[in-house]
């Protein structure tokens, strides 16, 4: 056993908090193709986010001209975490699209 010059040895407790094991969730099935699908663009309130999605929308329209686009703008960093008053609106929007491209500005 190691000891310092004074002979002291310390048996120490872990400062790292215990966390409960999490029930892991898988991803939802992917699409075969984006052609003809309705693609949701989710934008948070970081200022790069809308600019990123502007480019994304332009490229989607170029490469998938039959795809439709629907945008949802968050007022915060996260609709689901920070905007409980918009939960139903957000869920309704998700139901109306086939896939989502999100930009969080980070």
């Amino acid at each position: 056993m190691s000891a310092d010059k004074a002979g002291a040895s310390y048996e120490v407790l872990s400062p790292w908090a215990e966390a409960d094991p999490k029930q892991l969730k898988g991803l939802s099935p992917r699409l075969d193709d984006l052609a003809g699908k309705k693609i949701g663009l989710l934008c948070n309130n970081k200022r790069a986010a809308p600019l990123i999605l502007d480019v994304t929308e332009r490229l989607l329209k170029e490469k998938y001209p039959t795809a439709k686009i629907s945008r949802f703008n968050s007022r915060s960093f996260s609709v689901s975490a920070l905007e409980p008053d918009r939960k139903q609106e957000f869920e309704d929007w998700i139901k109306g699209v086939d896939a989502v491209v999100a930009s969080v500005g980070d």
């Binding site: 969730k25 991803l27 939802s28 099935p29 992917r30 699409l31 949701g40 989710l42 948070n44 990123i52 994304t56 968050s74 996260s78 609709v79 689901s80 975490a81 957000f90 869920e91 998700i94 139901k95 699209v97 086939d98 896939a99 989502v100 491209v101 999100a102 930009s103 969080v104 980070d106």
Partner: peptide, 25 residues
């Protein structure tokens, strides 16, 4: 990422653009 997970939980595939330095986060 919380919104992406929320959307996946609603049976909708999602892709999130993330700055490459922020992958761990």
């Amino acid at each position: 990422m919380y919104d992406a997970i929320f959307i996946e939980e609603h049976d909708t595939p999602t892709a999130t653009f993330t700055f490459e330095h922020f992958q761990n986060d």
